[in-house]
């Protein structure tokens, strides 16, 4: 006790440093955890922004695709195709000009089947890696194997 008192008298800054470091350590630890949390959240937010951007791009592409589909349908409408055929020098055949041939075991082409509605390709909740969605607590529990 006497030695300690003497040491304080000789170098009082040692105790102050010890006290300061003792009080700063939890603060630093808190800052580190906070920083990590902030970093994870920032990553999360960035990923969210990316998802939003991608969804925007997807919507744009779907719209563009619909626009192209409508234009294509318009360009290949029977009236236009008929006019193009006439312009190319074709004309409708008369019944007397057609020769019918019986083909044994002829298999008719399969009927047209419309594509499934595009929005139903990804029904229900979206699936993302848990890396983007799990909380720090969940990550800790997973890391500790609990």
């Amino acid at each position: 006790m006497r030695h300690r008192f003497q040491a304080f008298k000789q170098a009082p800054w040692r105790v102050q440093v010890r006290l300061t470091s003792g009080s700063m350590l939890p603060l630093i630890a808190l800052l580190i955890v906070g920083g990590m949390y902030l970093a994870v959240n920032a990553r999360h937010a960035r990923a969210g922004r990316q998802v939003l951007n991608l969804q925007g791009q997807q919507a744009d592409l779907v719209r563009y695709n619909a626009e192209l589909g409508a234009t294509l349908a318009e360009l290949t409408s029977p009236e236009r195709m008929y006019q193009r055929a006439l312009d190319l020098g074709f004309r409708p055949a008369y019944a007397s000009e057609i020769e019918y041939i019986l083909i044994e075991d002829y298999v008719e082409p399969p009927p047209f089947i419309a594509p499934r509605p595009p929005a139903s390709a990804n029904p229900g909740e979206g699936t993302l890696s848990p890396a983007y969605t799990e909380t720090l607590g969940e990550w800790l529990l997973r890391w500790l194997g609990w």
Partner: peptide, 17 residues
């Protein structure tokens, strides 16, 4: 914070032939 979650698609209308 901005949620990183895919948007669920609404049940689409049927296509008719």
């Amino acid at each position: 914070p901005l949620e990183a979650r895919l948007r669920p698609d609404p049940p689409a209308g049927v296509n008719l032939v």
